[in-house]
Design a protein around this nucleic acid. Structure first.
Length: 911
RNA sequence: GCCGAUGUGGCGAAAUGGCAGACGCAGGGGACUUAAAAUCCCCUGACCGCAAGGUCAUGCGGGUUCGAGUCCCGCCAUCGGCACCA
């Protein structure tokens, strides 16, 4: 280990303990009494008071994606985002905001459960141990979290409200008229639902949380179903186990009702365009039409969805998905065996096989024919697994001339291909899928010939509508959210099942008063042998005295993370998930921000990894909108600004992983360089959003910078004495530290212009860069200042004070320590650095009298001249033409033009 | 295949259309030291040249402009997402 640049091993624990003891980073809710000596109260004149929301300074809410506390502990990727938000939190506090900066644990999850299955140890114990380790690691980095607001999704006092929100969904429906969720009591039940059972069924069919018997992704290895989003290439996202289709009764959340709002509201929030695009693609809105085809002789109709109704004349066959409900009834007996065989074949394929075998199309003819409504022609009806049951109507009209998939299928099975779109000159019509002019699209009923694609779409849809054969419609790729899991370590559903007089099963919400509903203790955490979830093992718990049975599924891990940012606002409220006062103060922007910009609606800045670009962020937005509709929160969107930090790669430029052996453990970096150097390096590596490789020598570089900062302040002789004393008696190091003195050239004298100018340049650069999240260049500005200041004969206290304020967000421990030393001789007493006002720069100091101006000849720099900042156009031109160095390049040429950019450059164009 | 991002020294990177490479790492030289470490100072894109200086250079090829890393068009590569969604 190299020689220590400065005693960070003493400084860092000292300040972490002091911050914790003094509650320095407690954020105050409206109505809370602020203790007399708290620095926030001192700064804002609120000591000992209990200010209302409007008496408090404006809020700023900086949120990190809370981690899953895994057994492996923190890796260097976690603190990247945490450091960024911490720097901004400290900066905003200095500016005068009331900053909310909390941390917690996304603590339900499979690893603890799998460990329980193996060892019998309750997942809670595993989870608690992991949380303790994560807490230790995160605290060692000196983040200014308000730990009094810590939450864990596994805490019954937390998940009682997760269960409560589920009941809000269960007890609500989506009113298509108002386009918002409303209490289920507002649902008008039609008269023909004339029995209680029918009325119940009508309501249950419209709840935002409902039960559905549907094909799901079953993972035998994990013993649970998975959401579509959790299945990657036919395997489970967690563990990579095969997933098969299986029809099961499952809880679903009606997120599709919100598709349009989830899409439209992306407009108003400050997320990166690429992230918004990922959400848009996931929602997958597409405009088109549904068209009815009559089945020959059967009196039945098949409805297809198409985005190209203009190509209806080219529809030469229909394809149903193998699972389509009409398949059995339209298939004539002689084709029954072949069709059934194909259906079985398709059903037997796992998702993995479906994906892998997708290169070659398969299908069979059902033997049935349909009528193309535009020209009365009979066309065959096929089934094929390239048509998905779960999208659109599960049936398509095939237009092989103008759809790649249909074309492939028609080629293979020798089906007719009819051109109906004329491409631009020189393009082949076969397989042409873009817009063109309609051709061969005319019958006694309707004609589209000569129309552009856009026009033809409009015309055919209005014809279909007039004939009652179809209508314009919009489809989404987004599916309803499969919300139940067959696991132990998750939130139990607050639902019981009863039978009515007819013996049919129905669900009923558990009363709010019974929450939290805590999972029962088990001896064995495996699913039951017959495949029921682990909770089914607890028969005493499952069966209620009145014979009702508890739901034994649990909620997915996403549930807890859908609303944790709301619980932070009021983490210990016993009567509500968040009090109205706290919600309103922290989520609403302020009009009367007292000179500060007002902040933004919802979370002001949310930082986390791209891996949550669709799942967590879409689910959380959905829940938030439901809570908004039901009047529980005051903003339609939860996260106003969102930034994805880039991945940190190993030193080999590869993704860090245990198997590659390139994982960097923060504990080791901290032991050698300290938390401040670690934080600084995480930010100095490059732009926050970029992917970048770790380089241990880079840490050494910023560490050296902190050493220079230390030597800028501290007397060398006292440093040498301190080191010698420590070497002789390491146990008393902390005691010797009081002997460290400020350097004698740190003096309370006015700064000269050569000192105040670099300082103010630094203030401007750091301030602007922090606003724009450019941490790397802000740090470089600090380095430039220190490189200059270290050479000064005399160092004015006022300049150093300002510098420490700029440094504090990045390297808070060192800054606090030096700040304390700087103030120990000042009778005004110690002022808390954490709440000292952010310095402002004086533009007057930054005005230059003369400027260096490059002189170009034909765009190449030939000289640099010095001109007065106020130089006129003519003066600059003259000075440039007078340049000795530029002259040779003008020899024998005629000056055609002179470009003068004031304060920037002169370019002489000559030929 | 589709969508998105990125491409600049040996490395991490910086640059409102106006001196490309700030800041840092690594490397080289020097000071201090008995010596080393630490620290401090200087050099460090490539090529040509003794030097002064010059030429080339921001993935590749074009274009716009007095001037392009930056804007436009067409490619290539890497990374991320989606992928039979009709």
């Amino acid at each position: 280990m190299a020689r220590r640049q400065y005693p960070f091993h003493l400084i860092e624990p000292k300040w972490q303990q002091r911050w914790e003891k003094e509650g320095t980073f407690r954020a105050w809710n409206p109505g809370e009494t602020i203790p007399a000596d708290h620095p926030f109260g001192v700064r804002h004149g609120l000591s000992g008071k209990a200010p209302s929301g409007s008496q408090l300074p404006p809020k700023f809410y900086l949120l990190d994606m809370f981690p899953y506390p895994s057994g492996a502990g923190l890796h260097v990727g976690h603190p990247e985002g945490y450091t960024a938000t911490d720097i901004l939190s400290r900066y905003r506090r200095a500016q005068g905001y009331n900053v909310l900066h909390p941390m917690g644990w996304d603590a339900f999850g499979l690893p603890a459960e799998q460990y329980a299955v193996k060892t019998g140890q309750h997942p809670r114990l595993t989870t608690e141990a992991n949380i303790a380790n994560f807490t230790r690691q995160i605290k060692s980095l000196g983040f200014s979290y308000d730990w009094s607001r810590e939450v864990a999704t596994t805490d019954p006092e937390y998940f009682r409200w997760t269960q409560w929100i589920f009941l809000q969904l269960y007890n609500a429906w989506f009113n298509p008229e108002t386009r918002r969720a409303e209490p289920i009591s507002t649902l008008v039940i039609p008269d023909d639902c004339d029995t209680p059972a029918r009325q119940r069924a009508y309501r249950d069919d419209r709840r935002l949380a409902y039960v559905s018997e549907a094909p799901v992704n079953w993972c035998p290895e994990l013993g649970t179903v998975l959401a579509n989003e959790e299945v990657v290439d036919g395997r489970s996202e967690v563990g990579g186990f095969p997933v098969v289709r299986k029809s099961m009764r499952q809880w679903m959340l009606r997120i599709t009702a919100y598709a349009e709002r989830l899409l439209g509201d992306l407009e108003g929030i400050d997320w990166s365009e690429s992230l918004k695009e990922m959400q848009r693609n996931w929602i997958g809105r597409s405009e088109g039409a549904v068209v009815d085809f009559a089945v020959c002789g059967a009196g039945k109709r098949i409805t297809v969805f198409t985005t190209r109704p203009d190509t209806l004349f080219g529809a030469t066959y229909l394809v149903l998905s193998p699972e389509h409900p009409l398949v059995a009834s339209i298939t004539p007996p002689e084709r029954g065996a072949a069709v059934a065989e194909y259906q079985a074949h398709a059903a037997g394929k796992s998702d993995l096989e479906r994906t892998e075998l997708s290169k070659e199309k398969t299908g069979v003819f059902t033997g049935a024919m349909a009528i193309n409504p535009v020209n009365g022609e009979s066309i065959p009806i096929w089934i094929a697994d390239y048509v998905l049951a779960s999208y659109g109507t599960g049936a398509i009209m095939a237009v092989p001339a103008h759809d790649t998939r249909d074309h492939e299928f028609a080629e293979k099975f020798g089906l007719p291909v009819v051109q109906v779109v004329e491409p631009p000159q020189g393009r082949e019509w076969r397989g042409y899928t873009e817009d063109g002019l309609a051709v061969n699209s005319s019958s006694s009923r309707v004609s589209l010939n000569g129309c552009s694609t856009a026009e033809a779409k409009i015309r055919i849809v209005s014809w279909l509508e007039s004939q009652g054969l179809g209508r314009r419609t919009i489809n989404y790729k987004l599916r309803d959210w499969l919300f139940s899991r067959q696991r132990y370590w998750g939130e139990p559903f607050p639902i019981v099942w009863r039978r009515d007089a007819d013996g049919s099963l129905y669900s009923e919400a558990v009363s709010d008063r019974e929450l939290p509903l805590v999972p029962p203790p088990l001896d064995d955490y495996k699913p039951t042998p017959d495949g029921r979830p682990p909770l089914a093992r607890a028969s005493d718990w499952v069966t209620l005295p009145d014979g009702a049975l508890r739901e034994t599924n649990t909620m997915p891990q996403w549930a807890g993370s859908c609303w944790y940012y709301l619980r932070y606002l009021d983490a210990h409220h016993g009567g509500r998930f968040v009090s109205e006062g706290a919600e309103s103060y922290w989520m609403r922007p302020r009009s009367d921000a007292g000179g500060l910009p007002p902040g933004s609606p919802g979370v002001d800045l949310y930082v986390g990894g791209t891996e949550h670009a669709v799942l967590h962020l879409l689910y959380a937005r959905f829940w938030h909108k439901v809570l908004f509709d039901l009047g529980h929160v005051s903003t339609p969107e939860p996260f106003f600004k969102l930034v994805n930090q880039g991945l940190i790669l190993g030193t080999d430029g590869q993704k860090m992983s245990k198997s590659r052996g390139n994982v960097v453990n923060p504990d080791e970096v901290l032991a050698e360089y300290g938390a401040d150097a670690f934080r600084l390096y995480e930010m100095f590596m490059g732009p926050l959003q970029d992917v970048k490789p770790w380089n241990t020598q880079g840490v050494a570089g910023v560490y050296k910078f902190l050493g220079r900062v230390w030597r800028l302040f501290i007397d060398e002789a006292s440093e040498t004495e301190f080191e010698q004393a420590c070497a002789g008696d390491p146990a008393n190091s902390a005691g010797y530290a009081s002997g460290l003195r400020l350097a004698s050239n740190v003096q309370d004298v006015p700064a000269d212009v050569f000192q105040s100018k670099p300082l103010h340049l630094c203030i401007r650069k750091v301030t602007e860069d922090l606003e724009a999240l450019r941490f790397n260049t802000a740090i470089s500005a600090l380095m430039i200042f220190v490189n200059e200041a270290i050479a000064w004969e005399v160092k004015p206290v006022e300049v150093l004070r300002n510098f420490l304020q700029l440094l504090a967000p990045f390297a808070p421990h060192l800054a606090e320590e030096l700040w304390e030393k700087l103030h120990q001789n000042h009778p005004s007493g110690r002022v808390s650095l954490s709440y000292s006002p952010w310095p402002t720069f004086d533009p007057a100091l930054l005005v230059e009298d003369t400027l260096e101006i490059p002189v170009q000849v034909n765009g190449k720099v030939r000289d640099v001249i010095r001109v007065a900042a106020t130089a006129t156009h003519i003066e600059m031109e003259g000075a440039a033409l007078a340049s000795e160095k530029a002259r040779p390049f003008l020899a024998g040429k005629q000056v055609r033009k002179i470009i003068v950019v004031p304060r920037k450059l002169v370019n002489i164009v000559a030929a």
